[in-house]
Design a protein around this nucleic acid. Sequence first.
DNA 1: TGACAATGGTTCGTGTGCGAACTATCTTTT
DNA 2: AAAAGATAGTTCGCACACGAACCATTGTCA
Lengths: 144, 144
Amino acid sequence: MVDVNGIAGQIGRIREKANALVEDELKRRNIKGIVAAHGHVLAFLLRQKRPVAIREVVEHVRRVKSTVTVTIRTLERHGYVRKSPSETDARVTYVELTAKGRGLQKDFEEISEMLRSRLYGDMSEKDRERLVRQLDRIEANLSQ
Amino acid sequence: MVDVNGIAGQIGRIREKANALVEDELKRRNIKGIVAAHGHVLAFLLRQKRPVAIREVVEHVRRVKSTVTVTIRTLERHGYVRKSPSETDARVTYVELTAKGRGLQKDFEEISEMLRSRLYGDMSEKDRERLVRQLDRIEANLSQ
DNA sequence: TGACAATGGTTCGTGTGCGAACTATCTTTT
DNA sequence: AAAAGATAGTTCGCACACGAACCATTGTCA
């Protein structure tokens, strides 16, 4: 992180604090084996109605496939996820949430809501919208 | 990262993109052995006029001391930094930039500036200020 | 059909980051 | 001055993340 004192540093710090908050809350709820980093994969799987190929997960999760491999293995070890081979293509492996995994839905939503409200505090609706728009703009600027 | 689509996710993505930009620029400038993660330590050392105890680095860098130990070792391996024992207290070790390390100053400033300008794009001064204020507020909200 | 390319996943090596345990050296207490 | 405690750094074990190499399998096309 260059620009430690500028906006980039600020954004970095916010992200770290948000992360820490989520980790604390997971611990407080006694949810084992899940850390904030699994959020992307989990969020994606929660939106699925049926098993999806690991490749699909990779495409939606902004993580390299080797990373997804081990994330899924971890989730599997803790019983949140189940893998199964495709019957039509021996290369592909499907993943889906187990009952235990689907059980995270509520916590997931509550933690998201908690984070949002902690983060915004008593900021007005107008300001929130403006802020998100500005962040959109920044994100777009960095993406070109 | 819970809240993948909300503001927290947005901030996470911005941070990752900013990071990637810095890494690319370091590569482009053929600066070896430095990555964005060293920025904190480097920025701090660039501000110092004389050797500082590693403890001081730890206190300013928002990283745990074991992390700082290895960051400094890495910087040392690449010749950006030099360590020396204190003569009055055998427990403390001082760190300082080498000439090669100080040589990064200009790149550091240029990359910071590049990042800032890429990030803000053509956003007005007023909007920039407002944005930073809002981010300050968010950071404070998360810190309580 | 048989070589070659593309695809889906895993493995391996490396870097970052954390916390806990450890070593060595001061400092304080009694 | 000896015991207990505090402080400075390092090491160790672990998890995440990346990229490169690798393995099977499937597709392509000559």
